[in-house]
Design a protein around this nucleic acid. Structure first.
Lengths: 228, 228
DNA sequence: CGTGAGTGTGACAGTTTTATGACGTCACGC
DNA sequence: GCGTGACGTCATAAAACTGTCACACTCACG
């Protein structure tokens, strides 16, 4: 799941460089050259992090940070400030306003990415995931493993996600489209019938243990996961 | 059985808040405002976990952590450090001393509880300095040696740390990034793929004894150490 | 019984991800 | 200065996974 990173930086070359670095590391950059643009980009789907140049024209970064941190829906979005050397006071102010970290220019891409990782790690709550057990079929999100009778089952990543979705949403019929949305993610274009194939693979993976009945076909509608 | 949680925090309001949160979640809070008090509270019945503010007057948190981890009866008690923003080095030190996790203030009660659960889950089985034996593969943290069938195995320092981390955190997937954080340390910038190479070297070091299955690849996610 | 729509299956070719061997560098002890 | 061992990075080989098809099979209904 590529994270959306909003880059607020008025100097185009630097902005482009940042965007490039983001792409290199699997993030999805969104660029804004000034306060105005930034405001416009902060709409759903919200960015997962903001890289905020402190000195953007048309309003200081502090305003944007404050605006972000004061609204319910954007409060949680972490902000990394980018400051020029020696703007110590700004750093302090920035942290007070709610920035989560800062970097002093010039910085290396490596350092930036490392900081981003650290911030992400810090702000994202730990998984509470407990193992899910349905009819002896156990899915443990922590070890990322499915097992039955102490034996681990082998399956591909997609099958795992599919099963995970099913086990957390049992006893309910989902159309192929809904499954695509939930398991594959929105904005992924794939044939409906692809779901069938993965259902098949999932069944195959768990059938050896007599659990294939758990995945049920509802003709004309979709699939359901249920212990009956 | 409510778990006793020792809260070591000098700022009374924060301490009270923590105690309140603990009660809300069914834990039994024990409060200490400084090092001295904390020492006094660490008697039978021992607390089941310590929330330790790093900057307590009358002795730094590190001392308390070290004291706890050096005594037989308290060695196993997990410690969660509470640090102020930006004390990166302290975190590292804290983890070295034996803290099990850390939280950066300010943090949400939700996050705290989540971390606590995670730590409980993680630390429950293993002790710190005792040799760890998994499937005949024995790691002695004290002598810094690994052996299988009385034969000691040869591996580089990084592989040893990696194996040590794995053996103390089995049955859990870790992404390459997480492994870098835990084994290489934060603020070290190396490529994700470097982990692969060390996994390779680790496997090679232990495979001669039929233990290579212990290190498992979880495609698209990372690696896991598990006896299956 | 036919029929047609809806599903199950096995195969396949393209991609993505991981395993592996090699290489240059660096720190250290001789 | 010279080996030596450990590291991180690369290029390439090897696996594993994916989305689609074509075709077999089922089921509901006339």
């Amino acid at each position: 799941m590529p994270s959306k990173i909003l880059i607020v930086e008025d100097e185009a070359p630097i902005r482009e460089m940042l965007a490039f670095v983001m792409e290199q590391h699997g993030y999805q950059p969104i660029q804004a050259g000034d306060y105005q643009q930034a405001q416009e980009k902060i709409v759903e789907p919200y960015p997962d992090m903001v890289l905020l140049d402190w000195m953007i024209p048309g309003g200081s970064g502090i305003q944007l940070a404050r605006a972000l941190k004061s609204k319910e829906h954007t409060r949680h979005i972490p902000i990394i400030m980018l400051t020029a050397r020696g703007e110590e006071e700004d750093k302090i102010k920035g942290l007070e306003v709610g920035a989560d970290d800062y970097l002093t220019k010039p910085f290396s891409p490596k350092e930036l990415v490392a900081r981003m990782r650290a911030v992400f790690r810090r702000v994202s709550p730990t998984n509470l995931d407990e193992p899910i057990d349905i009819e002896g079929l156990v899915l443990d999100p922590v070890s990322h493993r499915v097992s039955a009778n102490q034996e681990s089952l082998d399956m591909g990543p997609t099958e795992f996600r599919l099963l995970h979705f099913f086990m957390t949403h049992p006893d309910r019929v989902y159309s192929r489209e809904q499954l695509l949305d939930h398991v594959w993610g929105t904005n992924v274009y794939v044939e409906d019938r692809t779901v069938d194939v993965h259902i098949r693979r999932l069944r195959k993976a768990i059938e050896a243990h007599g659990h294939d009945r758990l995945v049920q076909t509802v003709r004309g509608v979709g699939y359901r996961f249920s212990a009956r």
